[in-house]
Each structure stands twice: as C-alpha cells, then as structure tokens.
Design a protein around this nucleic acid. Structure first.
Lengths: 204, 204
DNA sequence: AAACAAAACAGAATAATATTCTTCAACAGA
DNA sequence: TCTGTTGAAGAATATTATTCTGTTTTGTTT
C-alpha cells in the first residue's frame, strides 16, 4: 500500500484504475526483484490482470519503467518548485533545494529507490530524448532562479555546473546509502547539518 | 580498445585471454546498449566466440556483470588506498579521497560509467552478500584511517556516516553528470575547487 | 613421449520471457 | 439504439537466456 498519491495525481479517474494498479505493482516488483529480474508475468500475477492489458497501457516493459520514472521525477520536481518559490535569498534557495530533496526521499522511499536505479535504463531507452529535454529544462530554470538573487550577499566562486553538484551531491549520496541500508539514520535527522555544510562550502 | 589494464591485472595470463576479451566486449555492449538490452548473442558476436564459452567462464549474464563490477571497484579502491597511504593529516586524507576518485573516473570513463549503472543489479543479484561485505570492510577501513589522524587540527562536527557523503557526494554527482554528457568540463579541471569546497564544508 | 585429467570451447537443444495478434467486452457520444 | 473507440483477455509467436552434450586444447604425471 502506497500512502502517497503520485499515481492518483498523474493518472486520475476510475478508468485509469488498472493502469495505476499495474504501475504500483510494477514499482514493487522492480524494487524487490530488480529491474531485469522483474518479468511481465510477475507483474501480471500481482495485479491479477492479463498481458494484453499491460501491453495495451504501456507498450512494453520499458514503457512501464518510463511511466514510473517520469511520474516520480515530476512529483519530486514539483515539490522542489513549491519550496523554491518561497525563498527570498540565495541562502534560503540553497536550503530549499536540499530540504525539499531530503523530505521527498523520506516521504517516498520506494519511489526514490526506484528513481535511482531506473535512471540509466531510461536514459538509454526510447525516451532518451524526452529525459534529456526535461533535464535541460529543469537545469535552466533552476539556474535562472538562483541567478535571480544576485551574488551580492555572498561570493559564489564556483562555476555554475559545479555549483549544482556541491549543493545536491552530499544529500544525494547520503540518501542512496540510506535507501540501500548502508546507514541507518534518517536523512531528515541531518537536514540542518547538510544545509549548513553546503552553505559553508559555497563561501569563498 | 581499452588503454587501461584493469582486466589484465585481474585475469592475467594467456589462458584467460578469451575471458578478458569477453569482458571487454561486454563492457562495451553494456555501456552502449544498456544492461538489459545487451544480449548474450551481441556479446558473442563482438568477440567471435560461442555461448558455450561465455557460460563456461561466467555462468550467466549476471556473472559477467558482477565480474566487471568487482574488477572495476577493486581497481578504484586500490587507487584510493595508494593515495591515502601518503596522507599525513586529515586535510590531506580528504584531498586524497577526492582526488583519487576524480582521477580514477577521468582515467577510466568507461569503467566508471559501468560502475554507476551496474551497482543496483549487482546489489540485488546472487553476489549481494559479497558486495555488502566488501562495502562494510572498505567503509570500516576508511573510517579507521580517518580517525587515526585525530580531531585535533580541526573540529569535525558531523557524525561519521554523514561525513563520508559530504566528502564524496559532490565529486560523485559531478562525475555522473560528466559521464552522461550533462556537463562538458572535465572533473579534473575542478580538482582543486572540489577538495577546497569540501574542506570548507567540514569546518565547524 | 604417452596417457590421463582438467579446463576451454563449440553449437544444437531447451526453457524462460517478451511481444504480438486476434477476439471480445465496456463504454461514450450521436 | 447504433457505432466507433478504448479496455481487457489469452492464445500464438518471437526473442533471448540457459543447459547439455560432445570435442578440442592444455597441463601434468609417469
């Protein structure tokens, strides 16, 4: 049972019920068994439907993968934009990015886990271009938002392409470790420390 | 053609020639086509051998994947240990970790690319336990090495499990972006900036 | 060198899995 | 009600992974 409503937001209505069900069970299978080890048959069995229905909705296995991936990514980005909208300085913006990221992962661990492992396959599959476009788009928007605050209150010495890695890198690495069980403490416990550390790292 | 000798180090000698060849071509296929899209037949065709030979050497597709993965990981760790051995302070140690990481990725881009995308599958497959053990081992060793310098010259406020993410997170994120083509500038150009930024982030 | 055992290799046969195709049912709009 | 469109089922097919059996090469022992 998924407490979040990522699927309901993206595929609303009664008629999409089976579509959502397939995606939900596929998400479970992918996370539990791994991408390659998950068979259409396994998904079919878990939601008690037919191969015909699955292929009707998604075309092929990659279609399921991509649908899940983009749903998750959009939800994550949506959260980011909400948080970022309230920021009134570069410092607040950096904090927003980090906190919204950590919060989202903690709120949607299964989706986050999937997002990490599905990126490479999606990046190579038939949705390659769509993914690239989205990334460029998101990247540009974020850049403009950050630049909008100006550099006055603090000198940001790093080039921009590096800046993004400095901001999100530590949180991302920790979340991966947490989702894989390598570390036990919830990322949320370190919210403050992550944001402050990053902010320190940005001072010239 | 691979200029590095990761394979020759790990599977030396004349008799392992085909084994190395299979791995090299498999690496190429996995990176080019993706893990799932790579078929045994495609690998077979590229090194002009038989399915029998492939299965004799690796058991199954996951066997190939895992052999490549552990070869790469060991080489990367080896480089880290070499660099780390020369460090005389916590500051130098942090620099060593970051620099050896960036250098290794730049020297072995194909291997690095593979390492990122193969982690999840290997972590779930039959070598799950071996991977976990190695990680625990490496993690412990690194921790002890860092602790050996003492906290005297600088206060490290973060808990240790978080510390590792602060050190390697930014570099890792940037390398992923670089290997996927999202950013163009070589990680090596930012060697200094990455290390200095991280060191700043660690000051209390 | 001859004999033997073990490993390397080849390729046909089989099994597992993804995908297509044909058919029928539910449903929305005229 | 009729009609075209979408949803769904499951048998049939195609693709791919894996097994199995036999042959060759290699290394070792006598």
């Amino acid at each position: 049972m998924n407490q979040s409503n990522i699927l309901e937001n993206r595929f609303p209505g009664r008629r999409a019920a089976l579509k959502r069900e397939i995606l939900e069970q596929a998400l479970y299978c992918f996370n539990e068994l791994g991408l390659e080890a998950t068979t259409i048959d396994a998904i079919k069995a878990r939601c008690d439907t037919s191969v015909g229905a699955i292929y009707h909705h998604f075309g092929n296995k990659e279609g399921i993968l991509s649908a899940l991936f983009f749903a998750a990514q959009d939800d994550q980005r949506h959260r980011l934009e909400q948080e970022l909208a309230g920021a009134n300085s570069l410092r607040e913006a950096v904090y927003s990015i980090i906190w919204s990221y950590l919060d989202w992962v903690v709120d949607n661990p299964e989706w986050a886990r999937f997002l990490y492992q599905a990126r490479s396959p999606v990046a190579k599959g038939p949705f390659q271009e769509e993914l690239t476009n989205r990334n460029i788009q998101n990247y540009r928007k974020l850049k403009e938002r950050l630049i909008s605050f100006g550099n006055d209150d603090i000198k940001i010495i790093q080039p921009f392409e590096m800046l993004f890695s400095l901001i999100i890198g530590p949180s991302e690495n920790y979340c991966r470790a947490w989702l894989s069980g390598r570390v036990k403490t919830s990322p949320q416990e370190y919210r403050k420390e992550f944001a402050e550390s990053v902010w320190r790292s940005l001072q010239s």
